[in-house]
Design a protein around this nucleic acid. Structure first.
Lengths: 215, 215
DNA sequence: CGTGCGATGTATCGGCCCGATACATCGCGG
DNA sequence: CCGCGATGTATCGGGCCGATACATCGCACG
C-alpha cells in the first residue's frame, strides 16, 4: 500500500528536484541505516509509477537554448524529477495514515527518517506503534528461548539470544525517544542532559521549514 | 542464486519430513530472529521449485488402506515433503560456496541458523565475511555522521547513530563468536558446557520430531 | 444440540524490490 | 591515446510478501 521507495522519493523531492542518480545517492545517505543501497531496478520503475499517478513530473534537462549546444554527441540528457502539489498531498496523507506496515523494520525506518516533516502527535503514535511491535517480537523470542530451547541447537539459540538483545535495546531506545517527544524537546541528546545548546531550528517542531527552494 | 527459503527448507527437511504448515511453523521458530513469519506466498512456490529441481519429493498423506476410511468428506490430504539425496547434496553445496549474499542480513542469519550442520572452517569463513561487511556498513555510517552531518536533520542523524550502534554491537558479537570458533569451543557458552564438539555427519539423531501424527 | 470460532491446512495473485546486466559520456592519469 | 572510475539511464528475471480464498477439525458457549 505504501511502499518504502514511494514514501522516500516523495519526501526527498520536497527538498529539491533531482535526477535519478542524485536521488539514489541521497536515498542511500538518508536510509543508509536501514537499507544498504537502493537499486535502480526499483528506483526507475517507482519513478515511472509516481509520474503515472501524477505525483511527480519528469523533464529532460535541456539547456536554455538547445540549438547553440553542439549536437555532435547527442548525449542522453539527465531527467529531472519534480514533485507536484498532488505529490505533496500524497506524502502528507502517507504520513497521516499509519498501517501495520508502518511498524515493520523498513517501514518504520523510512518514516523515522522523515520525522522532521511529521507533526509531533504522529511521531508519538508511530514510535509507540513500533515499540508495541518490537515488544511482541521480543516476547516471541523469549517464548522460543524458554519453551523450545531443548529442540534447537546451540547456534540457533545464540541467534535468538542476539535477536532478543537487539529487541530489548531498541525498546529502550524507543522509550527514550518517546520520553523526549512528550517533553517537547528535540530528537535525542547524545549524553549530556545539560542545555542542548544546539541548533534550535533544525526543524523538529515545525515541518514548515521551507528552506532550500531551488528554482 | 541461493534464496533464503530454499536453504532453510533443505536444512529443515533433513531433520524430518514435514507438510507445509508444520514447515512454516518450524521455519518461523528457527528464523524468528531474522524474519517475522514466512509467508505461504513464498513457501509453496519454493516447495514446488524444489520439487521440480528434484531436491525434495511431495507425497499426499494417504492412510495405509484408503478404502476403509469414510470418504464422505473428501478432505484434501496434507502433502508431506521429503528431502532427496540430491537435496542433501545441494544443501551441502550451498553451505560450501559463500557468495556476497551470504553476508547480508538475512543470508547470514539463515546460514548461522544452520551452523550445526556446517563445518568449523566454513563457520569461521562466514563469520569473518559477515564481520567485514558490517565493518564496511559501519564505516559508511561514520562517514555520513561525520561529513554530511549538517546536511541532515536531527531525526535522520539519530537513526544513523542507532544504526551505527547496532553495527558496533554486532561486530563485538562476531568477534566473540570468532574467538570461540578458533578455540574450538561450542557456539557461545552462557555457563554450561554440555554437548560440545558435534557436527560430524549430515544426519544427526532425530530430535524426536516424529510425533504429532494424528490420523 | 447447534453454532460459531480459532487452529490447522493448501494454494494463488498482484506487487515491491533487488541483483545482474547493458549502454553511453566525461575527466583524468598513465 | 587508452583505460578506468564516476556519472547517468534503463530493463529483465526472480524472490519474497500481504491479501485472499477455501476447507476441515475440535471445542466452548449458549
Amino acid at each position: 500500500m505504501a511502499p518504502v521507495l514511494e514514501f522516500a522519493i516523495l519526501g526527498l523531492l520536497q527538498e529539491a528536484p533531482m535526477h535519478g542518480y542524485e536521488l539514489r545517492k541521497e536515498l542511500t545517505a538518508k536510509l543508509g541505516a536501514i537499507r544498504a543501497a537502493i537499486s535502480y531496478g526499483s528506483l526507475y520503475p517507482t519513478l515511472r509509477r509516481l509520474q503515472a499517478a501524477g505525483w511527480i513530473t519528469e523533464a529532460a534537462e535541456t539547456p536554455a537554448t538547445a540549438e547553440e549546444v553542439p549536437a555532435l554527441t547527442s548525449r542522453r540528457g539527465r531527467v529531472v524529477y519534480t514533485i507536484t502539489a498532488e505529490g505533496k498531498e500524497r506524502f502528507a496523507q502517507l504520513i497521516a495514515q499509519a498501517g501495520p506496515e508502518t511498524y515493520d523494520d523498513t517501514g518504520f525506518g523510512v518514516h523515522f527518517a522523515f520525522f522532521a516533516r511529521t507533526d509531533q502527535a504522529t511521531r508519538l503514535r508511530i514510535l509507540e506503534g513500533r515499540r508495541r511491535k518490537i515488544e511482541e517480537r521480543r516476547e516471541g523470542l523469549r517464548d522460543v528461548l524458554g519453551r523450545a530451547a531443548e529442540r534447537l541447537d546451540a547456534y540457533t539459540l545464540e541467534l535468538q539470544r542476539h535477536g532478543l538483545d537487539a529487541c530489548e535495546r531498541e525498546v529502550r531506545w524507543l522509550e527514550e525517544l518517546i520520553a523526549n517527544e512528550r517533553s517537547g524537546r528535540a530528537p535525542a541528546a547524545p549524553d549530556t542532559g545539560t542545555a542542548t545548546g544546539r541548533g534550535d531550528n533544525d526543524s523538529p517542531p515545525t515541518p514548515g521549514t521551507s528552506r532550500t527552494e531551488r528554482p
